[in-house]
């Protein structure tokens, strides 16, 4: 890759890079929260695109300011795959699915949001205990908390929502959190691992997409509560 900060011979206040990463990591957490705060599927897709965009920006920042060149590839892949392709495909699926009435979440929205607040705190505690072991991380510790929190909130989304599509989004968002942790803690996993993960996500996504179709066509809905009927 041709450029990063030192290639261009620029020196930046190290704080700028850190704050940029902090800010966009925080945007990712905002998106995770909003997944829980809304039930509109189209909004979910857009939020996912925005979360991925934030992730891509974090990745670019890490690559640029810390001169971890291989992360550029991950960033570009994120941009193409998660910001453009997956949301577009998902919009299409939405378009094809049968419109349906809203399904009440298992836990109501205010309660799940309050639980989310507690989970962020738990993520904080987890980070503190990891830090207490004396590990040094490439980047500010709060990105670690945010990535753990993004994963936990995604899991919460999957637990509390009954729509298949939301679950897919939860899964993808969890992967975003994992990826955030990956690039910020270790300044990038080995290239091959990252590519492997990408491939996994892509395959998982398409399999889920196919499943969505099947569920929708079989039950006229993607409300997962109906799946309990399968055992009869």
């Amino acid at each position: 890759m041709p450029f990063c900060s030192t290639d261009l011979g620029l020196t930046f206040d190290p704080q700028i890079g850190e704050r940029l990463i902090d800010l966009f990591a925080a945007f990712m957490l905002v998106c995770s929260l909003l997944f829980l705060a809304t039930e509109r599927r189209r909004l979910h897709v857009r939020l996912y695109a925005f979360q991925s965009l934030s992730l891509a920006i974090v990745a670019f920042s890490v690559a640029f300011f810390q001169c971890e060149r291989h992360i550029f590839i991950a960033a570009i892949l994120t941009l193409i795959l998660k910001v453009i392709i997956i949301p577009i495909v998902m919009e299409r699926i939405l378009h094809r699915l049968i419109p349906q009435q809203t399904v009440k979440p298992a836990i109501n929205i205010p309660a799940s949001l309050l639980i989310a607040g507690g989970l962020v705190l738990a993520a904080d505690l987890l980070t503190q205990s990891i830090l207490a072991t004396g590990h040094q991380f490439a980047l500010a510790q709060n990105v670690l908390t945010i990535s753990i929190a993004v994963m936990l909130l995604a899991l919460l989304t999957m637990v509390t929502r009954k729509k298949a599509l939301t679950q897919v989004i939860g899964f993808l968002s969890m992967e975003n959190g994992l990826f955030l942790a990956g690039i910020t803690i270790t300044a990038g996993m080995p290239m091959i691992v990252e590519l492997g993960v990408f491939f996994d996500v892509l395959v998982a996504f398409f399999i889920m997409g196919v499943f969505l179709y099947r569920i929708s066509e079989t039950f006229d809905t993607i409300n997962l509560e109906r799946l309990t009927k399968l055992k009869h």
Binding site: A26, L29, V30, L33, L34, A37, N108, I109, P110, L113, L114, A116, G117, V120, L121, D124, T127, A140, Q141, N142, T145, I146
Partner: peptide, 20 residues
């Protein structure tokens, strides 16, 4: 629902503040 979101956003703001 909306205001719960606002409440949790503010709560997380405080948590993140201590985190830093």
């Amino acid at each position: 629902d909306l205001l719960a979101a606002s409440f949790v956003l503010s709560l997380i703001a405080l948590i993140l503040f201590y985190l830093l």
